[in-house]
Design a protein around this nucleic acid. Sequence first.
DNA 1: ACACACATGTAATTGGTTACATGATTTC
DNA 2: GAAATCATGTAACCAATTACATGTGTGT
Lengths: 201, 201
Amino acid sequence: MQRNQTAYVILGILAIHPHQSGYEIRKTIQQSVGFFWGESYGQIYPTLKRLGAEGLIVPDVSASQTRPKRQEYSLTPAGHLCLQEWLAVPYREDPPRDEFLLKLFFGRDAAPGVSIQHIRRFQEENRRLLTTLLELEAMARAHNSQSLPGFPFWMLTLNFGVAQLRSALEWSESALALLSTGEAGLVSNPQPTNSTVPEKP
Amino acid sequence: MQRNQTAYVILGILAIHPHQSGYEIRKTIQQSVGFFWGESYGQIYPTLKRLGAEGLIVPDVSASQTRPKRQEYSLTPAGHLCLQEWLAVPYREDPPRDEFLLKLFFGRDAAPGVSIQHIRRFQEENRRLLTTLLELEAMARAHNSQSLPGFPFWMLTLNFGVAQLRSALEWSESALALLSTGEAGLVSNPQPTNSTVPEKP
DNA sequence: ACACACATGTAATTGGTTACATGATTTC
DNA sequence: GAAATCATGTAACCAATTACATGTGTGT
């Protein structure tokens, strides 16, 4: 097996952004790959220790300007090599589990209106996420970036997210339309129907 | 806490299709919700026992025509109620983890060509899955179904899958285009470029 | 005779979340 | 001086996969 995924995210983040502490690494993860990857402290701190013991990262001793005590780390050459090797290995897709789709699939056995509610929530969350991603994209384009060597890859994943969300939102409209004829029932929350899918500006 | 997801899939499957054994339940899962949900035997058999002990399902005693010894189960009224309650609870989305996107994101640090390889594989797998789903859809439409009360929900999830896959495939084309200018490197496997995205017939 | 699909299960391990414990620093 | 956020960590728990063990029936 040997799937230490957490370790590799940390290596990858440190490769882009050296001298970060566990706390910062987590924040960076949330802000950059957050929409398709998450890590908890309970996973990060122990892994940081382990990576240090294996010589893949080193705790920064210098530049003790840090206000509260905190430990920053950087990649060693061995760590960078390790990251590169992992990147070359075919990706492994872990078994998918989408509770939203599952509940929808079993919608026949749900009380009337339930599935519609789920789809509504799905829509709202996807809209929210989509606007976040579009903002991120705009910032990235406008701001510095561009010339950074990581930029195209970062854009690629962003574009992927945007494309998936748009398609999910389109689907959700047709899904609601389909269920409204026949389901309906007690459909609360008519909602001011805030526009529809955000478009790129 | 309290997310017994496995238990609910089993209840849901038995609600649609009673008198199934653990082995069959697993097959049914793979064939129906397989593209967004998976279960292993190590999870199914113990859960079956537990659900029996809780009175949510009953082992079928009758109709012992089954060639090899095997235990079939059916929902009890309590089990059906339990399923309904669970369906009404807002879905919980578990933290996303997409190793493909992660490796792509760190593509800057990969050897040349690596990211392209990943995308190629991604494309192939999505094409395969898409054709499978389209076949399923065609069968479902043509075949019996239609009138079954579960049909619209089943279609909804299928349509979702198809939409997501199409959008992913479109994205992958543009991604390859983007990486080909600059990456390239030693791009093996020029591949006979088997058409592109399958269209609906 | 051999292999493969049917069929049921258990044990070990792991990957991961959650909750808890603790304390410093900033901001209101 | 209270609250929020920065910051690091540990322990308990759990869901799930994997590998193993075992045996029957079917087809070649």
